[in-house]
Amino acid sequence: MKKFFILLVLSILCGSASWAQKIGYTDMEFITSKMPEYQLAQTEMKKFSEKWAKEIQDKFSEIDRMQRAYMAEEILLTEDLKRKRQNEIKEKELEAGEYNSKIFGMEGLLFQKKKELMKPVLEKVQRAVTKVCSQRRLDFMFDKSSDVGMLYTNPKHDYSDYVMEELGIDTKTKATAGDKVGKVEQPPVQAPTENSPKQKSTNSKLK
């Protein structure tokens, strides 16, 4: 819907006889990949993600240990002790699942930390973009790396160099269109979920 709206506005403006607006585009994905602040934020994000993932994994490892201990001792336990041990394991599973959601949920701590770390970077880029648009008298500037996309991009309208200059980034290292050298890829950190195999195994054994 957003892409359709943008294209509709452009078609209306381009069809107007009084068309006098100046349009430019930039590649924010490439620009941010060249910013030391962005690299640092990515590194910090990776540290937090790995730390939290390990904490969650440790919780499920403890559940697995409790489960194996219970299965080994089950024959020697009274019915009351069996129920007690089962409840302890279920409580640990619930705790681990809730903590996983708290960290990796849609509005979880990882999401909040990303917003916190990226805010200064994005604000700095926005100031540079605003200044370049003012200096170059641009009416519109689009980010070709966003999900809005562009059907055609004429290189003479690429203002990435100016934004990079404003940020103090060496423009000589700019890659050609489609060249993603310098793009920073952060591998996703796999964290256990409430439906992990271990939990299913535990629940099935304790029924």
Rank of each mutant, 00 (worst) to 15 (best):
K113I: 01
T43F: 14
F104Q: 00
Q67F: 15
F104M: 02
K82R: 03
A53G: 10
Y38V: 00
I89E: 05
S49D: 10
K51T: 14
E91K: 03
E79V: 02
L77W: 09
K102Y: 15
K54V: 08
I63V: 15
T78F: 01
A41P: 04
T78S: 13
K47Q: 15
F104I: 02
A41L: 04
F104T: 01
K113T: 03
K46S: 14
L77I: 09
T43C: 09
E73L: 08
E55S: 13
E62W: 00
E98D: 07
Q57P: 04
L110D: 04
Q112E: 03
E98K: 13
K46I: 14
K34N: 12
K59D: 03
N87K: 14
A96C: 00
L94T: 15
E91L: 06
Y99A: 15
G97K: 04
T32W: 03
K34T: 05
F104V: 02
I63Y: 04
Q67N: 15
R83G: 10
E93T: 04
M71W: 05
M106P: 06
I89P: 06
D80A: 11
R85C: 05
Q42F: 01
Y38F: 12
E91M: 05
M35V: 06
R65M: 12
R85I: 08
S61W: 04
L76Y: 12
E98H: 06
E55W: 05
R83V: 08
Y38D: 00
W52M: 10
G105N: 05
Q86M: 14
M66W: 11
G105I: 06
F60A: 00
E98Y: 03
T32Y: 05
Y70K: 08
Q57H: 15
I56F: 00
A69S: 14
I103A: 12
G108A: 11
L94E: 12
S33F: 01
M71K: 12
M66F: 12
Q57C: 07
A72W: 05
T78Q: 03
I75E: 15
A41V: 02
E50N: 09
E55V: 13
L76P: 01
S33H: 01
E37Y: 10
T32V: 13
K102W: 09
Y38K: 05
R83W: 09
Y99L: 11
N87L: 12
E98T: 05
F104C: 02
I63E: 11
K84S: 05
P36I: 06
Y70D: 08
I103D: 06
K54E: 12
E29L: 07
E95N: 11
R83F: 07
M45P: 05
E98W: 03
L109F: 10
L81N: 15
K54H: 07
K46N: 15
N100Q: 11
D58H: 03
K113F: 03
D64F: 11
N87A: 14
F60Y: 07
R65H: 13
L94W: 11
G108R: 04
